[in-house]
Computed example of a mutant assay.
Amino acid sequence: MTRALILVRLKPRQPDGSMIGESRRTCHLVPTPEADAMPQFLTAYCGLRIAPGSGEVLSSPVGMPCEPCLACSPVVVLDLLRHVRPWLGGPVER
């Protein structure tokens, strides 16, 4: 069974006061933590570790999606797109 996903984007101002540029504020796909778990950080499908207070949970996709998250996520629709891409004239994956 696939766990539910949450959408997370880095906040422009990080907890340590540093600023994040818009190019780094992509929309990441993150598996929801187990109900009884309290992780020290969230890990996106791309491998990005999101520390408490450094990200915002989104109710819908905002901005650019993180392409590595899309490629690594278990989203069924994205898997379907990988299979029909050759029919649409895109590059063939090997």
Rank of each mutant, 00 (worst) to 15 (best):
M1A: 13
M1I: 05
T2R: 14
T2W: 12
R3E: 14
A4Q: 14
A4L: 10
A4S: 12
L5I: 09
I6L: 15
I6K: 11
I6E: 14
I6N: 09
I6W: 11
L7V: 02
L7E: 06
V8P: 01
V8I: 11
V8E: 03
R9Y: 06
R9K: 14
K11T: 07
P12R: 09
R13W: 05
Q14H: 04
P15Y: 04
P15M: 01
P15S: 07
M19I: 13
M19T: 12
G21Y: 11
E22C: 05
E22L: 06
R24K: 15
R24N: 12
R24T: 11
R25Y: 03
T26D: 10
T26C: 03
T26P: 02
C27V: 05
C27I: 07
C27H: 02
H28P: 01
L29A: 03
V30W: 00
V30T: 02
P31S: 08
T32L: 10
T32D: 08
T32K: 12
T32V: 14
P33F: 00
E34W: 01
A37T: 05
A37Y: 01
P39A: 00
Q40I: 00
F41L: 02
Y45S: 09
Y45T: 10
C46R: 05
C46L: 01
C46Y: 04
R49E: 09
A51C: 10
A51T: 08
A51Y: 04
A51S: 12
P52H: 02
P52Y: 01
G53F: 05
E56L: 13
V57R: 09
S59P: 03
S59F: 06
S59A: 12
S60Y: 06
S60R: 12
S60L: 05
P61S: 08
P61V: 08
P61Q: 02
V62N: 07
V62A: 11
G63C: 07
G63E: 04
M64Q: 15
M64H: 15
P65R: 04
P65Y: 03
C66H: 08
C66F: 06
E67G: 14
E67N: 13
P68Q: 12
P68L: 06
P68A: 11
P68F: 01
C69E: 08
L70W: 04
A71D: 15
A71E: 15
C72A: 15
C72V: 12
S73A: 11
P74S: 13
P74V: 11
P74D: 14
V75M: 11
V77L: 15
V77M: 15
V77D: 14
D79E: 13
D79Q: 13
L80D: 13
L80Q: 08
L81Q: 05
L81G: 11
R82K: 14
R82G: 14
H83F: 12
H83Q: 14
H83A: 13
V84S: 02
V84W: 07
R85Y: 01
P86Y: 00
P86V: 01
P86W: 01
P86R: 01
L88H: 10
L88I: 02
G89W: 01
G89C: 05
G90M: 01
P91M: 12
P91E: 15
V92S: 08
V92K: 09
V92L: 07
R94I: 03
